[in-house]
Simulated scan of single mutants.
Amino acid sequence: MALQWFPGHMHKALKEIKESLSQVDILIEVLDARIPYSSENPEIAKIRGDKPCLKILNKYDLADPDITAQWQAHLESERGVSTITTSSDKPGESRKILDMVRQICAERDASVKAINAMITGIPNVGKSTLINILAQRTIAKTGNEPAVTKSQQRIRLDNGIALHDTPGVLWPKLENPNSIYRLAASGAVKNTAMEYDDVGFYAADYLIKAYPEVMQSHYKLEELPDTEIEFLEAAARKRGAIMRGGRVNLHKICEVLLNELQSGKLGRISLETPEMLVEEKREMEAAAKKKAEAKAKRKQRFKDGSQTPDKRDRKETRTEKRQEQSRRMKKNRR
């Protein structure tokens, strides 16, 4: 699936984040606990440097708890990174974020000046809701669709922390094709920027393999089909997603599947694991190497001329004439 969604305001927001990062003491990055890798902005990692970072795995109540624990261990293996899980149904737990910020910035906390924390996150990851919980009042506009926050704002909390809110941004180029699908499946991108059928097929293929019992039980199937198309057809019949003539409405059942996944009706589901990431990175490196080799070959063919023997002879003749002309000119100057 080709996903093109990097509006102008996102480019501007990313530039502003880079410019403001040097003025803050700690970076807080809100991730979707179901897709910690795919919802992690690689542009932020590039510019963070040695600045401490607290990664919040939000929507924990929707994610598989065992896999989330794996992700926390994986993320915390990186220097300067701490993690915490949060969910909107337990606002009291989210307040622990401020205690962690003060603990990480202990030296700054001892001074009279406020701790400056910048909070970032991709669209629809729940950042604005989290900010309102931390501020204990409605400050950030929330919405059930991506890209609600459009500009930076500074929020003074009542505990010596100044929170710099930033718009939700994706990044210019999504390298991992699997991440593109997971972002779409989790609801991180607008419905208009994705194709339900394409994303639905990807989600179905993953879910029947990773959570077979859940899928069979939820869609009341006597047995779970082996392929995503067979599963979607069976689920469509159970849900009445049938068109005239008895044909299955694949678009409709894909829409149903994605809506139930995003709302948590399927239960606590994670769409990626650290183990999957290792394999996917290996595949990406192999693909990048193959692409680089192909590019080098094209450049070499262009350099060599990729010519017929007759054209090569003419090229050699032209080269010899230029060399001879150069020798004569040098001789005449003496």
Rank of each mutant, 00 (worst) to 15 (best):
M1L: 12
G8A: 14
M10I: 06
K12E: 06
A13K: 04
E16K: 14
E19L: 10
E19I: 09
S20N: 14
Q23N: 08
D25C: 00
L27D: 02
P36I: 04
Y37F: 14
N41Y: 06
P42G: 06
R48H: 05
P52T: 04
L54D: 05
L54E: 08
L54C: 04
N58C: 02
N58A: 00
A63H: 02
Q70T: 10
W71E: 08
T83R: 02
T85P: 01
T86K: 01
T86L: 02
D89R: 12
S94L: 00
V101R: 07
R102A: 06
I104Q: 02
I119V: 15
I122T: 05
P123E: 06
S128G: 09
S128N: 09
I131T: 06
N132L: 07
L134Y: 12
G143P: 03
G143L: 00
E145M: 07
Q152R: 10
Q153D: 11
Q153A: 11
I155G: 07
I155W: 07
R156S: 09
L157I: 09
I161A: 02
L163P: 09
H164Q: 13
D165E: 15
P172D: 08
P172N: 06
I180F: 04
R182L: 15
L183I: 14
A185C: 13
V189Y: 07
M194G: 06
D197M: 05
D198K: 13
V199L: 11
G200L: 10
F201M: 07
A203H: 09
P212T: 00
H218L: 01
E223H: 15
P225C: 11
I229Y: 01
E230A: 15
A234M: 01
A234D: 06
A235R: 02
A236T: 14
R237G: 05
M243C: 10
R247G: 05
K252L: 09
E255V: 11
E260V: 05
Q262D: 09
G267Q: 07
G267F: 08
R268M: 13
L271W: 02
L271A: 10
P274E: 07
M276E: 14
E280L: 13
A286E: 14
A287L: 12
K290E: 15
E293D: 13
K297I: 14
Q300R: 15
Q300H: 12
R301E: 15
F302Q: 11
G305H: 13
G305E: 09
G305F: 12
Q307T: 07
R314P: 03
K315F: 10
K315R: 14
E316T: 09
T317G: 00
T317A: 13
R318S: 08
Q323L: 12
Q323E: 11
Q325E: 12
Q325Y: 07
S326H: 11
K330S: 10
R333S: 09
